[in-house]
Amino acid sequence: MADEIEIEQKEIEELALKACRGAGADEASAQALVDATLSAARFGPATLGFPHMVDYLNSFREGRINCAPVPTLTRPYPAMLVSDADGGVAQLGFDLAFSDIVDAARSFGIAMFTQTNSYTAGELGYFVRRLAKVGLVGLAATNANAMVVSKPGGPSVFSTNPMAFGFPLGETSLPLIIDQASSATAFVNIVAAAAEGRPIPKGWALDTNGADTEDPEKALGGALLPFGGRKGANVALLVEMLSAGLSGGPWSIDTADFRSGSTRPAVGLTVLAMMPGPPEHGRVARAHAQTRRLAGLDVYIPGISKSEFPPSHTKKLMIPAAIYEAIHAFAAGRSHPK
């Protein structure tokens, strides 16, 4: 079999929905997860699309995700929305609150959505991309189980603690989307390297003895490093406070592993939605002009550079054959080797 499968977007969407149902997820959870997965596959890092979806499918089946959650939403302040995801996928709680988030941002200029008790958030860029689509600037932060040290030789105290930022650039452009971990690399990149049997660069991770390693298998048993040393660790701490601190969710050091066991991670997610000023101020058009100016100076613009516009809904997606087989196995109600 080829290393990758070329597949129609509609076909993989239907297969993924069937796989979620096969893993035990209810319809609302399945649709929320598949929408986010397709968004990641089309616009985000490929590893956070369907390869990461297999983690969700295993977690549905093994009890780390509530398959039929009933998220609740409260509003302690006019522009603050607080969600309890009831152990389900983070995307569902966000979906259910989305119209309220948008209305609050448009009424007050800014709105905050903070959520606890969910599974890990997947591609964080998805949340700010949703906001940018309706003309809002977004900032998002989330955590998961500890896998990153603050310095070599220290214990794992943070997750990869990503932060995402989105800025709408009008109807003639994709939005600016910055989505990056505070670790030297995303955890999924270590997992992908291990699955493919290829080495990782020095400076990404440590083995169990705290030594720098190029072996992804040893890295999986060890820990990741923050990017830029102490500066990356500070960013990880900032994200920890935005996500677990504001939501009241567990700190990374207290969070269950999202890939093993039967305990739900129950982590936090915080998303800020901001108006880019009144339309007559032209902030969006100004930002669009600046991104074009920077691109002309050979600056990479995340979310835009190397992306086609308008995006195609019919262009086929490339999916690793092993991932396709795993999703197909869930859709067929079969178990599969991890």
Rank of each mutant, 00 (worst) to 15 (best):
M147L: 13
A85P: 10
F113L: 15
N143H: 13
A105K: 14
P162G: 14
S150P: 05
Q91R: 15
C67G: 15
P45A: 12
P71K: 00
F50A: 00
S59T: 12
F113N: 03
E62F: 06
Y119C: 07
N66W: 01
P76Y: 09
M53S: 08
R106M: 10
I101K: 04
T160A: 10
P69V: 06
V54K: 05
C67I: 12
Y77H: 11
D86K: 00
P78K: 12
L139T: 07
A105N: 07
F43W: 02
N66M: 14
L73F: 05
N145I: 02
H52P: 00
F43H: 12
A104Q: 03
A144P: 01
D103P: 00
P71V: 12
T72M: 04
G49V: 05
M112G: 01
P162N: 13
D86G: 09
N66E: 15
I65E: 06
E62C: 04
A90H: 08
P78D: 09
L73G: 05
G44F: 00
F158H: 07
L96N: 04
A85V: 04
P69H: 06
Y126Q: 05
G63S: 05
S107M: 12
V148I: 08
V137K: 03
F158Q: 01
G135W: 08
G49L: 11
D103E: 14
A79V: 03
F127W: 04
V128W: 09
D100C: 07
G93Q: 11
V148G: 03
L38A: 07
A40S: 15
L96E: 10
G49N: 11
G63Y: 07
V149K: 00
V137L: 08
P76R: 04
R64Y: 06
A105M: 09
D95Y: 12
S99P: 02
Y56M: 07
G109Y: 09
G153V: 10
F165P: 01
L169Q: 02
